[in-house]
Simulated scan of single mutants.
Amino acid sequence: MFERFTTEARQLVVLAQQEARELKHPSIGTEHLLLALLDSGSGGAHVILREAGLTRERVVADINRLVRPESVPLGDGDAAALEAIGIDLDAVREKVEEIFGPGALRPPQPEQRQGWLRRKVVGDHRPFSFRAKKVLELSLREAVVLKHRFIGPEHILLGLLREGSGLAAKILSEEGLDFTVLRRQAVAALDKAA
C-alpha cells in the first residue's frame, strides 16, 4: 500500500511518528495522523482543516485533555478529595511538569518487544494503533473508489473521517466540524489537483 503514497503522504506518516514521539505516546494513533495533517506540507488537507478553524495548538490541547496518562493513579474523585483539604491536583501536576518536564509523573515505559521471536524494538519507532492502521486502509479504499492510482494526504483525511471512531474523529466532532462538509472539500481538492 505504501508504494501508492505520494511524497506528501509519506511525509505525513513520518510526521505522525514524530508527533507520537513528542507527546510520549507508545503508538501512532489517529490523533497523530490528524496533527500531521495540520502540517503545511499536507497540501489540500492542511488547507481544509485550517479553513475549518483547526489549529495544531487546539488539537494538542484536546489530546492532552482527552488522553490521561494511564500511569497517574489519581483520578477525578481523588482530585475532589484532595481539593477538600486544600490541595489542587492539577496545580501540583502542572508544577511537577514545569520543574521536571512533560510526562515527569509517568513511570518509565516497559521495554517494547515485537515479532515472532519477541525481538526488541530498535530506536524510537512507534507502531501504528489498530485505528490508525484502519485509517490508512480506508485511505486506500477511498483512492480506489475515486479511481486514483495514488494516496495523498486528502485520501488520509477521507480515511480518518470514514473511520469515525478514533480520538481524531472525537476531536473533530467536539470542535464542531461537519464530517460531510470536510469530506466534500477533500474530494473537491483531489478533483482540482487531478
Score class of each variant (00 low, 15 high):
residue 141 R to I: 11
residue 158 L to P: 06
residue 44 G to H: 08
residue 97 E to A: 07
residue 71 S to Y: 01
residue 67 V to H: 05
residue 39 D to R: 10
residue 186 A to P: 00
residue 116 W to I: 12
residue 91 A to L: 11
residue 12 L to Q: 03
residue 155 H to K: 05
residue 16 A to W: 10
residue 162 R to L: 09
residue 83 E to A: 11
residue 171 I to M: 02
residue 7 T to E: 14
residue 104 A to C: 12
residue 156 I to Q: 06
residue 146 L to C: 03
residue 5 F to G: 11
residue 44 G to C: 14
residue 94 E to I: 07
residue 2 F to Y: 15
residue 186 A to F: 02
residue 117 L to A: 15
residue 54 L to M: 10
residue 110 P to W: 08
residue 27 S to M: 07
residue 41 G to D: 12
residue 150 F to M: 09
residue 166 G to K: 00
residue 136 L to P: 13
residue 135 V to K: 00
residue 128 F to P: 01
residue 190 L to D: 00
residue 166 G to L: 08
residue 18 Q to L: 15
residue 169 A to W: 03
residue 47 V to W: 03
residue 165 S to M: 07
residue 92 V to P: 04
residue 55 T to D: 12
residue 36 A to L: 05
residue 34 L to I: 04
residue 148 H to A: 06
residue 68 R to L: 14
residue 159 G to K: 00
residue 168 A to W: 08
residue 94 E to N: 05
residue 180 T to F: 08
residue 55 T to H: 10
residue 133 K to A: 11
residue 186 A to T: 01
residue 180 T to Y: 09
residue 122 V to D: 14
residue 68 R to M: 11
residue 52 A to M: 13
residue 14 V to W: 09
residue 83 E to Y: 09
residue 77 G to K: 11
residue 137 E to P: 02
residue 100 F to E: 04
residue 100 F to Q: 01
residue 37 L to I: 01
residue 153 P to D: 06
residue 132 A to S: 10
residue 56 R to L: 13
residue 78 D to I: 00
residue 137 E to Y: 13
residue 34 L to E: 05
residue 10 R to F: 03
residue 144 V to T: 13
residue 33 L to I: 10
residue 8 E to R: 12
residue 88 D to A: 09
residue 46 H to F: 08
residue 113 R to Q: 15
residue 75 G to R: 09
residue 14 V to G: 08
residue 108 P to T: 00
residue 45 A to N: 01
residue 136 L to T: 06
residue 46 H to S: 05
residue 143 A to Y: 03
residue 31 E to G: 13
residue 99 I to Y: 07
residue 75 G to T: 04
residue 30 T to K: 06
residue 63 I to L: 08
residue 84 A to P: 00
residue 132 A to F: 11
residue 44 G to V: 04
residue 53 G to C: 04
residue 160 L to E: 13
residue 185 Q to G: 05
residue 3 E to Q: 15
residue 132 A to R: 04
residue 88 D to V: 02
residue 147 K to N: 15
residue 129 S to I: 11
residue 81 A to T: 06
residue 68 R to Q: 14
residue 75 G to P: 05
residue 189 A to Y: 05
residue 57 E to C: 12
residue 46 H to L: 06
residue 20 A to N: 05
